[in-house]
């Protein structure tokens, strides 16, 4: 195992550990801190793979922008000094199931390798156009160089693109898709921020009298 491979596994392992910690921790600001390390680790992997621009964008947009706003929102809305979040057993079960299913789908997609869909000579590249196999997608997700489809990931036909590198050159196109998929978490962040920052309605007590106003609501 070369030094680069060792570094890659170290970085990936740390990023994965931080990602697990985001889910497991109950303190909401600590979860944000772990998310910071996760996002920084992902951008580190992107730098490692030579996709400098995507890595810097990841840092600037998600770490420097979005995550600051998240913590800002948490600080503005937290009612105690360090609020904790309790997760119920049912929520644990459902999310574990969904996570395992997603993991299974991705792992199958990556590990399934047919003879006709070989790295550089498979039908996906021979047809010169559409990305038909999940294997290619999964491998380009992982940033595997040889399987990076030439411009197929973005959905633009190869003959219409002018910025394609010549054959044998490394194409950074394959890393665009994972970056976009990671950006889905922006939606989650927005929903969470809206949930945390929404106006809390005062509950009506049984006798019709409004309950005393909770401080900070």
């Amino acid at each position: 195992m070369s030094f680069q491979v060792f570094l890659f596994y170290l970085l990936a392992g740390l990023t994965g550990l931080c990602a697990i910690s985001v889910v497991v921790t109950q303190n909401i600001v600590r979860a944000a801190a772990w998310l910071l390390f996760t996002l920084a680790g992902v951008s580190g992997i992107l730098f490692f793979l030579g996709a400098n621009f995507v890595g810097a964008t990841q840092l600037l947009v998600y770490v420097g922008g979005t995550l600051v706003l998240v913590v800002f929102g948490v600080m503005l809305t937290a009612q105690g000094p360090f609020i904790t979040m309790k997760t119920g057993a049912a929520e644990w079960a459902v999310s574990t199931l969904v996570g395992l299913l997603l993991y299974g789908v991705l792992a199958t997609a990556i590990l399934t390798r047919t003879k006709t869909n070989d790295f550089a000579t498979g039908p996906a590249t021979q047809q010169g156009g559409e990305l038909t196999r999940s294997t290619v997608l999964g491998e380009s997700l992982l940033g595997i160089e040889q399987a990076t489809p030439k411009a197929n990931v973005t959905g633009v036909p190869a003959e219409k693109r002018k910025d394609l590198p010549s054959k044998g050159e490394r194409s950074p196109v394959g890393y665009l898709l994972p970056f976009e998929i990671v950006s889905v978490h922006l939606l989650v962040v927005l929903i969470g921020a809206a949930y945390l920052a929404r106006t809390k309605r005062r509950r009506q007590a049984e006798g019709g009298q409004p309950a005393p106003r909770v401080e900070g609501s």
Partner: peptide, 25 residues
Amino acid sequence: LNIAVFFMLAVMSTEIFGVILGGYG
């Protein structure tokens, strides 16, 4: 790097996080 300016702005934007987390913590 050929995107050195962008990289510098990006990593320096993470510096606030120390201040925010330290201040909050």
